[in-house]
Every structure is written in structure tokens, then in C-alpha cells.
Write a protein that binds this DNA or RNA. Structure first.
Lengths: 251, 251
DNA sequence: TGAGTTAGAGTCATCCTGACTTTTACTCTT
DNA sequence: AAGAGTAAAAGTCAGGATGACTCTAACTCA
């Protein structure tokens, strides 16, 4: 509205903005760990403590700058490994947050990723003075607009769960149907009928029964299953719509 | 993996990267206009011609830099109005593209939005030597990675259409059920049963029958309807999951 | 050996969906 | 003025999916 500006020009970015906004990559990490009260699997996420101003001492999402030779995805993965020691099974872009008032003085645009890790991996992760796991969604007051970001990530997680193959990212290579159901229950926040859940999963195409059973329980040993489908849904990984035939012209 | 880096530090961005990546905002705009062959509504999108290197002369998505006092959303809307003269009814973030090789030399991270406009508005939009509408998905070879971006936007549009209240963004304030069905057909690329479509829409909560009828056709005049629900689903606009009651503990 | 526990299969009424038919209300042509 | 043409709107029906529930199988522990 103010600028007299040619139609399109990346090259112009630095000409105009004296202080171009800084770019940061952050990640919301989710894992299932037992609830201290009920003992049942529940959602947790790790946060790191700010060791400099602004918001010094407060908890925040792990993150950092974008390396010159890293893609956004690589930056998220790399920074995650550094700050928390985690290498997630699932890592996908969540949203780019770029409000003008989300950080004092130098303006920061954050591209936020969200990750899902398996419980055993989560148990290995570093935990010290500056890294701690919190039970979602009760994470207290966070630095910047990170409460809003965590809320949005939770919403997306639940949304994806309803029509997506995302639950398997919380689990190991093989799993019982009860374990898979507990993932759904923990994320969706409600109980599911075990019998109906089993029926639906038997109809799912890319879940495959192994010939192994999980021993050790005080009851009939459950069969182990394996997921054979794909997990990620990046723009690069999606099926290409442009090459699909037009059904309206067929038949 | 290489950097020795404190846990979290936005302030570090400029210390390390000598040339911090430039930030650009682009938008994929969709509108329904008649197909020149069949005359039925089809998907179109406007592109602008590059007037400088790189990719000089090629078609590209409208876009530009991020103003210092603009949010990302405002930047997308403002740039849209400048380059194409459009003020979309629906405007939402699509994805942030940040591969290291998507633009020659200075590296550019693009935060891409997607917009839906009504046909009458689209007809008003500027169209000249440097702005032209293309029939999706046949847009030819575009600058940068914009073919990939358009493909992803199309995929998202179809995905949203299946369980979303997005179709109304293509239409005016009131519309007939046949018009709404044509929107679905154009986007999904297949024909729908008019009778079943009607039944489903009668069951939808936020679609409301007016007492007006569209005259002028050579047949029984159809009733006009109005959409009363919300369109956008930004992180800010979503319903907050943390405040929702837990269904498992009810009843 | 029997009680306890969960796995896993099966039953049944109900809702939703796709495919189709019928009736209504308008315009255009003869 | 009457009938043909067209699309709107309502109705019908079979099949599939879903939610709630019951019953049997297979293990462990006291």
C-alpha cells in the first residue's frame, strides 16, 4: 500500500528493510510417557530453559537459527539433536509465526516444526537443569508466544490423529493393538471401544500381523503388529495431483 | 552437528550466518472461472511475469518482501492487492519453502499463502502483459520451485474441500445448491450426485435457506442459501483444545 | 486348580452413503 | 394455450460402516 514496487522481486528484500527479520527454527516435540497419577500413557513435551535475554530463565521450545547449508527440515532435526538429544521418527512443518510483536526488538519469524518420538527414545533424552519434560497441556507460562504455538500443535496433533497414519510414530517397530489404542486414547483424550478399534484396524490396509506375541503379561498374550505404510506428508512426499487422471472425463 | 551452540539463542542468528537467508511472501490464488471448452466452472490462478533476474520473463507466483510493520498475513494480503488487484475472501498460510537450492545465490526462504476469490472479484482483477490467468493445473514451466508449490496448493485445496467449509469462499453471499455443487466438482475433478449432495448439505449445521429464489433460468427456480459459519482456520482462529471438556469423564 | 485379566471373535440395531426414481415448477416452442 | 424440455427438490432402497454389547480363548498368579 505504501511501496512503489515492481510486480515481483526477491532481490529487493534487503534494499528496503533496514533490519530484515531474523529467521528461527523451533520444534514442538511430543512423546507418550506414563501419567504419574494414573500410570497410563499420556502426552509429554520437552522444553528448554532460556539462558539469555529476553525471557531469561523461562521455559521455551527448543530451537535455533537456520544454518546456511541446511534446509528447514534439516535445521529442525539438527537443532533437536543438539538441544534434547532426540532423533524423532516423525518431523513435519507446523506453521510459520511472524507477528510483529512476538519478540522484543529484533523481529523474529519462527518456522515451527512438530515431532513425535517413541517412548524408549524419549527416555534416553537428556534431562538436566535446562531441559525438562512437561505434561501437556499443562506447561506453565512460556517465553515468547510459545504457549500459543504449543496449543496449536496439540490441535494439529489431534486433528491428524483422526484421519491419519500418525499414531505409529509414537510406537516402536512392532506393537500390540492395545498399545496402539492407548496412543489414540492419550492423544484424543477419550476412551475407545477395544472391540470396535480392533475391527477397524483389521480393515486398514497397511497394518500387518506378525506371528509374534508379547509375553510377560498376566493374561492372554497379545499378537504383535507392524505398520507398513508411509509416515510423512511433506509437500515433496505427497502424491502428485497434477499427474492424476481426471475422473470426470473417464467412462 | 558442527556448531558448538548454546541451547537456545535467537540472538545468535546473525553471528553465524554471514548472509542470512532472505524472507519472501508469495501467494497461490485460486478462482473459479468457466472452462473455455465445456463452459463449466474450472480452477484458474493468476501469475505474474518476472521483470528481473533470475528467471526474467518467466511466470511466477505473485509475491514480495515482508514489510517491517506487517504480519505475515498482512504482507500476503497487501502484496496481493498490489500485484493483482485482488482482495481475497479466504487467505491462509500454506507452507514455508526453504530448500537451499531453490533460488540461485542469495538464499530465499518463502512463506507461501493460498487464497480463494469469488468469480466476480476475479473478473475485476488486473490483466495485462505481466499478469495473466492460467487454467490449473496446466500452468507451464514456472520460475523457481513454483511448479512444486502450485502442485502442493492444489493438493491442499482438494484435501480441505473434503472436510472443510472452504467451498463458500469461492461464492458470493448467497448461492444455489447447484452452484455449490459445481464448486465441489471443479475442485475435486469429479461429478457428484445432485440428490445426495442436497441431502448432505441439508444436514450441515451452518448452511441456511433464505426465502429467495434465483429467477431467470429455463427451469424451476432454485432456492438461494447462505453460509453462516466461519471460514478461516488460522492458529489464532481455531477452537482452543486445552479448554475443551474431556468426553471420557462426562456422563 | 480356580480366580482374575485381557485378547480376540461375534452379534445386532442404527446411521450414513451411493444409486436411482418420482414429483414439482418453471421456460421455451409450436 | 398446450405440450415438450429442464432442472429443483423430495423420496426410496440396498449395502457398508459404526457404536454398544456379549461370549469365548489363553495366559498368570494365588
Amino acid at each position: 500500500m505504501v511501496y512503489q514496487q515492481p510486480a515481483y522481486g526477491y532481490a529487493n528484500v534487503s534494499e528496503r528493510a533496514r533490519q530484515p527479520p531474523a529467521l528461527a527454527i523451533s520444534t514442538v516435540i511430543f512423546a507418550l510417557r506414563p501419567d504419574p497419577e494414573t500410570g497410563r500413557p499420556a502426552l509429554w513435551l520437552p522444553l528448554v530453559r532460556r539462558i539469555r535475554e529476553p525471557f531469561l530463565g523461562m521455559w521455551a521450545l527448543p530451537g535455533g537459527p537456520l544454518g546456511a547449508r541446511e534446509s528447514l527440515q534439516e535445521a529442525a532435526a539438527g537443532n533437536l539433536a543438539q538441544t534434547t538429544g532426540l532423533t524423532p521418527k516423525y518431523l513435519e512443518q507446523l506453521y510459520a509465526f511472524g507477528g510483529t510483536d512476538r519478540s522484543p526488538s529484533p523481529r523474529v519469524v519462527s518456522i515451527v516444526y512438530w515431532a513425535l518420538v517413541q517412548p524408549d527414545e524419549a527416555a534416553l533424552s537428556r534431562q538436566d537443569e535446562n531441559v525438562r519434560w512437561f505434561r501437556a497441556p499443562a506447561v506453565g507460562e512460556l517465553a515468547f508466544d510459545h504457549n500459543e504455538i504449543v496449543g496449536y500443535a496439540l490441535w494439529r496433533l489431534r486433528n491428524r490423529m483422526e484421519y491419519g497414519s500418525i499414531a505409529y510414530a509414537f510406537l516402536g517397530d512392532t506393537f500390540t493393538l492395545a498399545q496402539l489404542r492407548e496412543v489414540y486414547e492419550a492423544v484424543l483424550g477419550r476412551e475407545l471401544e477395544p472391540a470396535n478399534f480392533r475391527r477397524q484396524l483389521r480393515a486398514a490396509p497397511d497394518i500387518e500381523a506378525t506371528d509374534q506375541y508379547l509375553q510377560g503379561g498376566r493374561h492372554r498374550p497379545p499378537r504383535l503388529y507392524r505398520y507398513t505404510g508411509a509416515l510423512l506428508s511433506n509437500p515433496a512426499a505427497r502424491s502428485n495431483p497434477a499427474t492424476q487422471p481426471n475422473p470426470a472425463t473417464e467412462q
